[in-house]
Simulated assay, not measured.
Amino acid sequence: MPQQLAYLEQYKQRVSEIIGQQETERLVSQSLTLMTLGGNDFVNNYYLVPFSARSRQFALADYVPYIVSEYRKILMRLYELGLRRVLVTGTGPLGCVPAELAQHSRNGECSEELNRASGLFNPQLQAMLDSLNQEIRSHTFIGVNIRQSSIDFISDPERYGFVTAKVACCGQGPYNGIGLCTPRSNLCPNRDIYAFWDPFHPSERANRIIVQQIMTGSTDYISPMNLSTIMALDAVENV
């Protein structure tokens, strides 16, 4: 993440050499930024192996506020760099992706432990965003509830036109949840009827459902307001 922040600073410097500092600050302040936080900190860090370094250092109830506090520093740095509209997504239901089903599930049930992690993390992330917005007196940081959007089609895939939310379109092993999607993987005949493309990531069609909730959803999905409302407000302010 420090490297990504450095890239943003480099970008601003290069653009300012072309259009000037004032126009660069205006450009950056009117941009829309998407930040996705949390998933890898659990799946590829805390739970990657039994007795991982992080799990020995922190109990889960202590690890969650620790990473939320670290994210707060990152978001404040983005604010200092001039960003004023930042969509921040938490984690989906981590225990329900095909990769975790392949490792932990006997009958297709989700991993309760991983879902407990996302259940702890997402509310604390949103509370931190609310606190930040109150501190800076602006709705700069918008919380996106990816967990709820994903649970909708995972718990009732047929309602959304999917034949399964357990088996990935591309993969191998149980639930096509082992390894990566490669030319030698099993490949489904129609990716549009699978909720997951590979062992970890939603399919394009599932992502479109998530994006629709970002655009027009209620505060159950995006808070304090959806993206359509934000764009309408910004259009008035920037006239």
Rank of each mutant, 00 (worst) to 15 (best):
P174V: 15
Y194I: 02
I178Y: 02
I193P: 00
I193E: 02
Q148I: 04
Y160A: 03
D156K: 10
C188A: 13
G171E: 06
G161Y: 13
I146V: 14
I151Y: 05
Y194M: 12
G177E: 07
G171K: 08
P183E: 15
I154M: 07
I193N: 00
C169M: 11
I151P: 00
N186A: 11
C181E: 08
L187R: 11
I146W: 14
F162K: 00
I178K: 01
A195M: 12
C188Q: 12
R159V: 07
D152I: 02
F153L: 06
T182P: 00
A165Y: 04
I154K: 01
P189R: 15
N145D: 15
A165F: 09
C170I: 04
I146C: 03
E158M: 10
Y194K: 05
N186R: 08
P157F: 02
D156I: 11
K166Y: 14
P157A: 04
P157Y: 01
N190T: 05
I193V: 13
R191V: 14
P157C: 04
T164P: 02
V163D: 07
R159K: 14
K166R: 14
Y160W: 15
I178E: 06
K166N: 06
G179R: 11
Y175C: 06
Y160D: 05
L187A: 12
A165I: 01
Y194R: 04
P157R: 00
R184W: 14
F153R: 07
T182G: 01
N190C: 03
F162D: 02
S149Q: 12
C169K: 12
Y160N: 06
P183A: 13
G161Q: 06
N186F: 01
T182C: 02
N176I: 04
Q148G: 00
C188D: 15
Q172W: 04
S185D: 12
S155D: 13
I154Q: 03
C188V: 11
N145S: 08
A168N: 10
I146Y: 14
I146F: 13
A168Y: 00
V163M: 09
I193S: 01
G179Y: 06
F153M: 03
A165T: 05
R147G: 01
L180I: 02
P189W: 15
L180W: 02
Y160P: 06
T164Q: 11
C181K: 08
I193M: 07
S149I: 14
C188R: 12
P183D: 12
C170D: 01
I178A: 06
P183I: 05
A168Q: 09
S155K: 08
R184F: 13
R191G: 10
E158R: 13
Y175E: 09
G161W: 14
R159I: 07
C188H: 10
I154Y: 02
R184N: 12
I146L: 10
R191H: 12
L180F: 02
R159T: 11
R147N: 14
N145L: 11
C188S: 12
N145H: 15
I193R: 01
R159L: 13
L180C: 05
K166Q: 15
V167P: 00
F153W: 06
N145V: 07
D156P: 02
S150L: 03
A195Q: 14
S149H: 10
G177A: 11
R191Y: 15
R184K: 06
S150C: 01
P183T: 05
